[in-house]
Simulated scan of single mutants.
Amino acid sequence: MAYDFQVTVDCADPHTLADWWAETLGWEVEPSDESFIKEMIAKGMATEADTTTHRGVLVWRIGAAIRHPEALPSGRPRRVLFQVVPEPKTVKTRIHLDVWVGSERAEEEHERLLARGATLLHRGRQGPLSWITMADPEGNEFCLS
């Protein structure tokens, strides 16, 4: 049996990083359900300290998610969750995203992402395959190929 899954990224500022990745991938940030958040606070299941405002919208403080515009055949979204962790990133990430843009667009995308706050880490090649290893604005590694 095959399983659906989401990728979760630890970070300091999940809403800003979700915005960055949604624009990078052409995905969408999952909308916040402000009425649900307010209901959870009213019922005592959350406090206002569990929330923040991002771009004028009430959101959960600890996380934000992005999703692909099209669902999987199961109906579940292709999803990346960004969640707050207290410690900063200090070592190489043991798992990363490979963003496939095509060899004819890799340099153009590399330049576009540098202008948006990504950093170049190194370039790699194995036989006919090449990639550009970069880091997002919080230092999370990803490869562009």
Rank of each mutant, 00 (worst) to 15 (best):
S103R: 12
E28H: 13
A118I: 09
L25F: 04
W21Q: 01
E30G: 08
R78G: 08
L58I: 03
V84Q: 14
T119W: 07
W60P: 00
G26M: 08
V101T: 00
R94F: 06
A49Y: 00
R94Q: 13
H96N: 10
E30Q: 14
L72M: 15
F82S: 02
R116C: 09
A135Y: 08
E141P: 05
R105T: 06
P69A: 03
A115M: 03
T52G: 03
G102M: 03
P128G: 05
F5A: 13
I95L: 15
A12K: 15
S145R: 08
S103E: 15
R79T: 10
R76E: 13
G44I: 11
G127Y: 08
T52D: 06
K92I: 10
E107L: 12
P73A: 12
K92N: 10
K92G: 12
L129W: 12
P128Q: 08
T52A: 12
L114M: 10
G139E: 09
R94N: 13
V101L: 04
F82N: 00
K89L: 15
P14Q: 03
R105W: 05
I37Y: 05
W20P: 05
H122M: 13
W100M: 13
G75T: 04
C11R: 06
Q83D: 13
I132W: 02
D13M: 06
L144K: 01
M45Q: 12
S130T: 07
P77G: 05
M1Y: 11
R61P: 04
R112G: 03
R112A: 12
L81T: 09
E30T: 07
W100I: 14
R123G: 06
D136C: 06
V99G: 00
F5Y: 13
L81M: 14
H68M: 06
Q83C: 12
Q83M: 12
E28Y: 08
R116L: 10
L25W: 07
Q126Y: 14
E108I: 01
V29K: 03
D33I: 02
D33L: 03
M40V: 02
M134S: 02
S74T: 14
G75P: 05
I132H: 00
L144Q: 01
S103M: 09
T24D: 04
E107I: 06
T24P: 00
I95P: 00
P86V: 00
V29R: 09
D33S: 06
L81Q: 10
L114H: 04
V7S: 11
E111R: 14
A22S: 11
L144G: 01
Y3K: 14
G26E: 06
K89I: 15
R94C: 10
I132F: 03
R105L: 14
E23D: 11
D136K: 12
L97H: 09
G44N: 05
V101S: 01
L58R: 00
A118C: 13
D33P: 02
V7L: 15
W131D: 06
T133P: 06
P137F: 04
K89N: 08
L113P: 09
V101F: 02
D13A: 15
R112M: 04
G63I: 05
Q83G: 11
